[in-house]
Design a protein around this nucleic acid. Sequence first.
DNA 1: ACCTGAACACCGTTCAAGT
DNA 2: ACCTGAACACCGTTCAAGT
Lengths: 189, 189
Amino acid sequence: MSDSTRDQLITAAASLLDSGGQEAVTLRAVAQRVGVSHNAPYRHFRDRAALLAAVAQRDFVWMRGAFGAALSGGPDAAASLRTAAAALIDYAHSHRARYRLLFSDRGLMPEPELSAAAFACFEAFAAIVARAQGEGALPPVETVRLTGLIYAAVHGAIDLELGGRGGGKKGLGSVEATVGLLLELLGRR
Amino acid sequence: MSDSTRDQLITAAASLLDSGGQEAVTLRAVAQRVGVSHNAPYRHFRDRAALLAAVAQRDFVWMRGAFGAALSGGPDAAASLRTAAAALIDYAHSHRARYRLLFSDRGLMPEPELSAAAFACFEAFAAIVARAQGEGALPPVETVRLTGLIYAAVHGAIDLELGGRGGGKKGLGSVEATVGLLLELLGRR
DNA sequence: ACCTGAACACCGTTCAAGT
DNA sequence: ACCTGAACACCGTTCAAGT
């Protein structure tokens, strides 16, 4: 059984994002990869943005699963937190354009299903933070706010690097080092 | 004395960024605002990216000045730090597309002058962090790394909000609140 | 229900000229 | 040195048909 045309279009778009970035994802190139005419995608997606949203949707679900696995897999919540952050960083490095599609792209969020998937992903991360707070590895402030802070810091470090703003001459270390510093400083009490 | 055509093109591009975002900045629209033919910009900029880089360059210089003013204007370094962060947040809210151009856009940084301006801006921010450390308001870790962390967190909070990822349902507060929480937690020792 | 081919309006960029 | 008009290759999107 082969995938449906719709699934093939999503897969082709994701692959083009990886190999050539956002600008490489033209509906014509996507259609060509699947072997359909250049406007066949309009039978499955409202427009280009909706196709990209479908790619993001799929990845948000995967990411949520990775966070869930991190929570149940570590020896303690602090380790789970580091595992989750590492998963996010690895994903960003392996799929630069897709990372930005999920976490930076404006004009994608109106899709309600996508917002829900993004929210579920955030909640899975928050569950790890909550447990780490319970274990005393993070300060006992309101969990949502603390999660928002850590999420923002990790995202910011990744995004600056992807945009070429973190590079060598500024002297700031890797994304991993920045996140490590944050967790270390938050852990001291 | 009117501005040079080059300056007028930069101003027109910045204005279009504010009113319609990146996609509104077509060389044709820019040229039309200035009253020249649609390809006159090529006499002043290598291509569209170079024009956008010139906009970013101008704003990086302004931002560096704002950081410098924050450093010399506050009663103490902690206040200067909050002023600098507030300036960044205000700029992001007032010029959404321009903020992303400066801090997220890939494929802009190759321009060496722009990299230098971005670096100078970061250094001005680092000077504030260093003084805050000297006053005991921030932990005594390596200044570059701490600056990178704070920069990343502020940027991440802003970028998530600009991308629609910070919004209401997640329950995380405003960018100001997130940054405030970070500085509060870093200040406890 | 799904797909195709032609067409439209729009871009960035290049080029041969013009002053 | 700076600007113009025509042209090229490329897009997203729409539409009238086809099976």
